[in-house]
Design a protein around this nucleic acid. Structure first.
Lengths: 221, 221
DNA sequence: AGGTTTCGTTAGAAGCTATCACGGCGCCTG
DNA sequence: CAGGCGCCGTGATAGCTTCTAACGAAACCT
């Protein structure tokens, strides 16, 4: 017999339905993208009629916001798992690319074209800085101390986003480059801008990663 | 008195209306993004009723496709103008950033989240390779011959996208890095992922550009 | 067992894309 | 210059969407 559960049956049912809605939402996004996500279609696929879903989500916007949150959480978990099993900088890069290729639409939910009115809630910026902390950890273990670049000194005066992390400015700079460069390659690859060009995007990604390492990680001699 | 014009009055009227529709579309995109673009709203703003626009555009998709085309054209022209007035690699980078900041939504129309079913027509890939040619020109004038990177040799076997350009493989590699890295910074900046972090995105862009140059352009001693 | 809360329904308003049939104006030609 | 062909804009209509409102029924808690 089940242990005493502080959650009422109604609550459990509610969260279960919400999860099922999200599941259908992800399927629909995977086939047609987030812009084509339809509450009506989800409801019909679940065997109930349109407005029923408004008992569970305030509207389309709230559902999408929650999907974005879950996507962020999923990415942070993927990077966290890699980091926990001892991944270094290239390990994190590999985890990032794996996560991106696993579901391109999910990647674009996080890093794609922003919705005009949307402003990220604190919960999401917290996840973002959680990922940044992972990256800074990996770079702090790698960077010697770093010749101060002009941008590095600028960062030293604006390191609030590092959230008290003790990484040297050179590591901050490297982490930012890691982020922007790999996003650059991944974004263009997933958006299909490389299709028809013939070369292997994986090799371009690897080349960018090599460049990132050659430049920032010469301390582990 | 006007010179003899091979275009009939009807044709002129037609192209004029089409241009006006696009103008309103750009305004609407600038305030609410491309996903919120509404033929109906445009028609009303122009003082005519909904279905009238279907005389000028087959549908919403055709209008958006044409806006994307115009955006590509605009970017290629911006880069072309810079190139024509003697801009080198950093000059092209500056032109790119200027164009991007001028209208972020237009940037995302080109490089943002792709629409699921959409496949770029030949006309657009032609513009893309036109821009790539500009970039390759600038790099060919800069790169010595380049120590062959592994990815460089891979590119040598898959250089179809360079469209017969005589640039050495190192230049191809550098041009690709230019593209992906600057897109990485710009994309994250325009999407607002740097807001609240405190540092100046322009300096990060400049730092990435410096890195791009330091590595690829040491021939101009 | 009764009362309250929550669920799912149908109905409806407002918006959108897109198609159709119709009337009228404008352009080109005879 | 007048006739006729063709294009333009309209209203009506179908079908889709989000989202609100009111109602009945079911399930939960006391």
């Amino acid at each position: 017999m089940p242990e005493k559960d502080p959650t009422t049956p109604r609550e459990r049912y509610r969260t279960q339905v919400r999860a099922e809605v999200k599941e259908h939402a992800w399927e629909q996004i995977a086939e047609s993208g987030a812009s084509a996500l339809s509450l009506n279609a989800i409801a019909k696929r679940m065997g109930m009629s349109g407005p029923a879903l408004y008992r569970y989500f305030a509207g389309r916007d709230e559902l999408i916001t929650e999907l974005i949150h879950d996507a962020y959480r999923s990415l942070a978990d993927a990077l966290g798992a890699a980091s926990a099993s001892g991944a270094d900088v290239p390990g994190l890069a590999h985890a990032l690319r794996g996560w991106a290729l696993e579901d391109p639409h999910r990647y674009f939910l996080v890093y794609g074209t922003p919705v005009p009115g949307y402003h990220a809630p604190d919960e999401i910026t917290a996840i973002a800085s959680e990922m940044m902390a992972l990256l800074l950890d990996a770079y702090a273990a790698l960077v010697p101390d770093g010749a101060a670049t002009p941008f590095g000194t600028h960062l030293e005066e604006h390191r609030g986003w590092a959230d008290g992390h003790a990484a040297p400015p050179a590591a901050l700079h490297r982490a930012l480059s890691f982020w922007t460069r790999l996003h650059g390659v991944l974004s263009l690859e997933l958006a299909g801008h490389f299709t028809g060009m013939g070369f292997d995007p994986a090799l371009l990604f690897a080349a960018e990663l090599d460049d990132l390492l050659e430049r920032g990680g010469r301390s582990t001699t």
